[in-house]
Every structure is written in structure tokens, then in C-alpha cells.
């Protein structure tokens, strides 16, 4: 009895192995044939490309109106929900009220004191005290969120953009703990009722995933500038930090610019021209 049970388990084990190996064998076998007619996946010809994308925000020309427009444009382009929006009662009946501190934001206004907390100064020039500073994902060269993610749902693209794969995110929020810039938001609930007008060019998100600025990767791929740049009246420039001839490099060459929390060594790619 014991012997037959044992041999049965053995046989079963071998068969499971064989079934498991079949797809691999099939894949190897398939890779050898018909290479000529294989489909291809490429960039679109009109796509913008860079070695390392970066952003420069010209704080000298920034004001509350422009900053407000930028935040609005970003929300609209990326379907970022707005918890102050009143959801449609017919479409979403019986919704629980949103909690303000569970809100989502990709780019938003902060005062100097909060944008650069470790550079606080008793004798800070007056103009900086009232100035709005736009903060967003810094697309760090050494991104702590990328290092922390247990599924590579957040990852660094070759062109420097720190991306989120919403399909893969398990919602553990390790990246939120890891980010030193508070750039990440979590979908504590289904965001759709709080999107005033859904932009069909970009998917919304489901509950339970983390999101953040993706530098409008979808727009860059179509040869469009990020939504914030478009709304910025020239106060935001996005370009290739590794290209000495780029507009952003020219700006950084001529002006004094700072980055947030440089001392942490994450190498942010967002510069603030002071």
C-alpha cells in the first residue's frame, strides 16, 4: 500500500513537471522558426526622446495664477481625482464622503518652508515667503521608490522617467514610505466619481494602487509637451538633461538653480531656478 502510494506520488510529480515544462519547450521550439514575419514593436516616429528627462521651474516668473492653471491642467490631462468635486448622485448613488487627507495629487503648490524644509532660514528674502513652489515627482536618478518596490511596478525607464505600472501595483505603499518628497498618492478609494470630466486619452486608475507624476509619458510618446509645460506660460521647461544643446541645459547654465533635498543623494531631475 505504502509503496503504491509512494510510486503514485512520484508519477504525479513527474507529470506535473512535464506539464509545467511544456510551455517553455514550446516557446524554445517556436523561437527558431518564422523570424521573417514576426511582428515588431517600436516608438512612434513623432515621439520625443531624451537620454534623461528633466524639468526646470522658473520660480522668478511663477505666480499663483500660473501655478493654479498648471495644477488644473495636470489633473485634467491625467484624470487625477479632485476630492472637492461633487460626484454625480445618479451615476454614483450613496457614496461615502471623501477624506481630505486621502486626496491625490501629482503636482501641487507648497510654500518655501514645505518645499525646502531643510533650507529654512530666519532671514529668508521676502519674495520667497509668499511665492508658490510647485512640487512633483523628481524622477530621481537614484530613486528610492524604485528600489523599494517589491514587484517592479514602479521602475526607471531608460530615458530617466520614473514610471508606475498600475497593472502590477499591489498597493503595499512601500514606495510612499520610501519617497523623501511626498510625491506619491494612494487610491484609498475608486477615483472615478471625483473626476469632473474624464479625459479619454489617459486611463483612470482603480482603487488600491499608488500613482504619481509620470512626466506625461503618454504625451511625450505622441510628440506633445507635458500638460504642465503647456499650461505654464514658459515657466516650466522639460528637456534632456544629458544633451548639452538642450533648452533646459542652457537655462541651467545661465541661472542659479536648486533641487529639493539634494543632500540625500537621490539626484532629483527637477530644478528650481531662483
Amino acid at each position: 500500500m505504502i509503496h503504491s502510494r509512494r510510486s503514485f506520488i512520484k508519477a504525479a510529480g513527474v507529470s506535473v513537471l512535464a506539464i509545467g515544462a511544456a510551455p517553455a519547450i514550446k516557446a524554445v521550439a517556436a523561437s527558431g522558426s518564422g523570424a521573417a514575419s514576426l511582428p515588431s514593436k517600436t516608438r512612434r516616429p513623432e515621439a520625443f526622446s531624451a537620454k534623461r528627462w528633466g524639468m526646470a521651474i522658473d520660480c522668478r516668473r511663477m505666480n499663483g495664477d500660473i501655478a493654479g492653471n498648471i495644477v488644473k491642467a495636470c489633473r485634467k490631462a491625467n484624470n487625477v481625482p479632485d476630492f472637492s468635486h461633487k460626484p454625480d448622485e445618479d451615476k454614483y448613488p450613496g457614496l461615502r464622503p471623501p477624506k481630505k487627507d486621502q486626496e491625490l495629487k501629482w503636482i501641487w503648490e507648497e510654500s518655501y518652508h514645505h518645499a525646502f524644509p531643510e533650507m529654512e532660514d530666519e532671514f529668508l528674502a521676502d519674495k520667497f515667503k509668499s511665492m508658490p513652489f510647485l512640487v512633483t515627482c523628481n524622477h530621481c536618478k537614484n530613486a528610492p521608490c524604485v528600489q523599494a518596490c517589491p514587484t517592479r511596478a514602479t521602475f526607471k525607464r531608460e530615458d530617466g522617467v520614473v514610471m508606475m505600472d498600475f497593472h502590477r501595483c499591489i498597493g503595499c505603499r512601500f514606495c510612499m514610505a520610501a519617497c523623501p518628497f511626498g510625491a506619491r498618492s494612494f487610491n484609498f478609494r475608486d477615483p472615478k466619481p471625483f473626476i469632473p470630466e474624464i479625459n479619454p486619452d489617459f486611463p483612470t486608475r482603480s482603487k488600491g494602487v499608488v500613482e504619481k507624476c509620470n512626466l506625461c509619458a503618454g504625451r511625450l510618446a505622441k510628440g506633445l509637451q507635458p500638460a504642465c509645460v503647456e499650461a505654464s506660460e514658459g515657466t516650466i521647461v522639460v528637456g534632456d538633461l544629458e544633451d548639452p544643446g538642450s533648452e533646459i541645459r542652457a537655462l541651467l547654465k545661465e541661472n542659479y538653480a536648486i533641487r529639493r533635498k539634494q543632500e540625500l543623494g537621490t539626484e532629483p531631475s527637477v530644478y528650481y531656478i531662483m
Partner: peptide
């Protein structure tokens, strides 16, 4: 979706 999100390749040329 992997190709678009992770590799930034958005154009597919079929067989």
C-alpha cells in the same frame, strides 16, 4: 501593455 508602459514602444507592426 508591458510594451507601452515599460518599454515606451507604442507602435505595433503586425504580421
Amino acid at each position: 501593455r508591458d510594451s507601452v508602459v515599460r518599454d515606451a514602444d507604442r507602435l505595433y507592426k503586425g504580421t
